[in-house]
């Protein structure tokens, strides 16, 4: 089992990433809190050793995505709620940002991870393939279709 100091370090280091992934997948703050805590508990109990900070980050991303998928297995969690309820931070969000974020969140679940990892985290398709356990070509296809869908949603605006 890992120490309290290690737990505090990763909460500071990866808390935001885990929180964002929860936002991408989950519909309410209660689920977010649940997954957030579960992910860090898994870390504390895990005996996995990491070769690099990138490796460690990829572990958090994968564990968070898997935890979210497990939770979303339930039919009752498939209802959506307005974005306002999801974003609990006080800073007001600009209209452009909100529109893009809403467009991404409204994508079918299978595209959201690839879009988030590519556009936000800056991972390449092979890296995304490794994290999500998917074929590289599948990742390219997902990203291509997601781009297409976002174009349609955003009315052809932006450099997708």
């Amino acid at each position: 089992m890992r120490s309290e100091a290690e737990a505090n370090r990763v909460i500071e280091q990866y808390g935001d990433t885990v929180r964002r992934l929860c936002l991408v997948h989950l519909k309410n703050t209660a689920d977010t809190e649940d997954i957030f805590q579960t992910v860090f508990l898994k870390y504390v109990l895990s005996s996995a050793s990491f070769e690099s900070p990138e490796h460690e980050k990829a572990w958090f991303i994968r564990v968070t995505i898997n935890a979210c998928r497990d939770l979303l297995g339930s039919f009752f969690r498939k209802n959506t709620v307005p974005l306002d309820q999801l974003l609990d931070q006080p800073a007001p969000m600009g209209e452009d940002h909100r529109e893009v974020l809403e467009a991404v969140l409204s994508l079918p679940p299978k595209y959201k991870d690839a879009v988030y990892l590519h556009y936000y985290e800056g991972y390449t398709a092979p890296e995304i393939g490794r994290i999500l356990g998917k074929n590289v070509n599948t990742v390219y296809t997902l990203l291509g279709r997601a781009r297409q869908l976002l174009k349609e949603k955003l009315g052809g605006e932006g450099d997708v």
């Binding site: 808390g15 885990v18 974003l87 800073a91 600009g94 940002h97 974020l101 988030y116």
Partner: peptide, 8 residues
Amino acid sequence: EALDQVRA
């Protein structure tokens, strides 16, 4: 920018 605003 939108996601940057999302923090734990």
